[in-house]
Amino acid sequence: MAKKFMYMNTKAPYGTIYALESLEVVLIGAAFEQDVSLAFIGDGVYQLTKGQNTDGIGMKNFSPTYTALGDYDVNKIYVEKESLEERGLSLDDLQHLTWEDEDEDWAEKDSIRLVSRSELADVIEDQDVILSF
């Protein structure tokens, strides 16, 4: 039986390598057909912001990869509402992440679920394995 895996992303996309190497685990992990969720909390919400430009820091902008997650059947992406608000951000500042629902004639659906801190706590409670980055 599939286990519930949650990847907890807590750090900004650049500055440290955690975000990039978390994404690498998610992509490899997708092949294992588990029940996968991603959570973005704290500075982790910056990972999903749109219009990232890394020209000035000489690093690869890996943010386009998040838009491919839907193709890997990674379509439960929880973003903590308070973390966004604390940083002056809203859903409009994030990339529009979607997936296609095979069971509904490939209808395009939103992957991002905006949840409150306490709602996210309930989702976390429900997981079998949590990988924190």
Binding site: K3, F5, E24, V25, I28, G29, A31, F32, Q34, D128, V129, I130, L131, S132
Partner: peptide, 17 residues
């Protein structure tokens, strides 16, 4: 590979980070 980490998550009662 990273698959070894995922496998540990699947096979173990607890994955401790």
């Amino acid at each position: 590979g990273l698959g070894q980490l995922i496998e540990a998550g699947i096979e173990c009662d607890r994955l401790v980070t």
